[in-house]
């Protein structure tokens, strides 16, 4: 925290107010779009508000949280969200690590590829979602015929199979987030001094030994921190599973974001949805706290 300088009193009011005035609009936006909605969600989560029964919210105490803990479908969505989150991050690391190692060279091709690899990250979910639906479509999808060839898919798209739908959408989610991990790993790889590898080569270390003793220790912190950031994003997924399958088939791809959305728009229970988002925020807060702690330790 900054301490006002000793001559504060002697400065005219205009000078003191100026920096606050300049930053005020940005603060107002942050208050209106983040702080106030969060406080409102907290208040709403203690209301009893089922639009079909009472049009106005009334105080309900813990009624939503009680309902939430008794909601078997929500518990399934909760555990599914963990599978989704961990799976997404695992795919991101599995795709990004070999790509980053491959792109960590100083050639024109590698530089161009490092830029183009970001496309899945920058392209909107709606385009990629429909693109993948097209690839997996049972009538026109190229990928569908590949899966059919290997016996993974029958005559209908694997998006209609509960287990495979979740697996493939987790993969797509990881594919979409992978470029961010590549970007971070490339930065970490570039900061490793080349002399380390030369010294190891002189000592007769094999490429694998060089990878495990030099490369991996140098990038594992980056991998962990970016993995946590991407994990938080994955935990709050909505767009991709919604666009691909609307949470189906048979709720197989219903993650918490979709449960929450359906609670407002299908079941007309905004207070219940607010309670879900409060619980999700509490989980996010714990995860962020842990990630900050990990970062301090490095």
């Amino acid at each position: 925290m900054t301490v006002p300088t000793a001559d504060t009193e002697r400065r005219p009011f205009g000078d003191i107010a100026l920096p606050y005035a300049l930053v005020a609009p940005a603060v107002l936006v942050a208050l209106a779009i983040a702080v106030i909605p969060l406080l409102y969600a907290l208040w709403l989560s203690f209301q009893d508000w089922y639009l079909l029964r009472n049009p106005q919210p009334v105080w309900g105490g813990l009624v939503n949280f009680q309902a939430l803990f008794a909601d078997a479908a929500l518990w399934r969505a909760f555990w599914r969200t963990w599978i989704w989150t961990i799976g997404t991050v695992a795919v991101e690391v599995a795709l990004a690590l070999p790509l980053a190692l491959l792109l960590n060279r100083d050639t024109t091709i590698a530089r161009m590829a490092s830029a183009l690899i970001l496309l899945p990250w920058v392209m909107p979910f709606i385009v990629l979602g429909y693109g993948w639906r097209f690839l997996l479509d049972s009538e026109v999808g190229a990928l569908h015929s590949v899966f059919q060839f290997f016996g993974l898919a029958g005559n209908s798209s694997i998006l209609n199979d509960p287990n495979l739908a979740l697996a493939i959408i987790i993969f797509i989610s990881g594919w979409k987030g992978m470029p961010f991990m590549v970007l971070a790993l490339l930065a970490a790889l570039k900061s490793i001094p080349g002399e380390l590898y030369e010294a190891a080569a002189i000592d007769g270390a094999s490429p694998w030994q060089r990878f495990t003793t030099i490369t991996l220790p140098a990038i594992q912190n980056t991998m962990l921190i970016i993995g946590l950031v991407l994990g938080i994003l994955a935990f709050y997924s909505f767009d991709l599973p919604w666009i691909m399958t609307r949470g189906g088939p048979q709720d197989a791809t219903t993650v918490l974001g979709i449960s929450m959305y359906k609670a407002v728009f299908t079941d007309l229970r905004p207070a219940y949805a607010a309670a879900i988002s409060v619980v999700m925020l509490a989980i996010l807060a714990v995860a962020s706290f842990l990630s900050l702690k990990l970062r301090r330790r490095q």
Binding site: V23, A26, V27, V29, A30, I33, A34, V35, I36, P37, L38, Y40, A41, L44, I232, L233, Y236, S237, F238, G257, M260, Y261, V264, P270, A273, A274, I276, S277, M280, L281, L284, S288
Partner: peptide, 23 residues
Amino acid sequence: IGFLILATQMLPAVAVLVPIVVI
């Protein structure tokens, strides 16, 4: 103030969706 502005970046849209829609 700097932290507050940055923290809004870390907040996913899904997290504030319900209150924003109701408001």
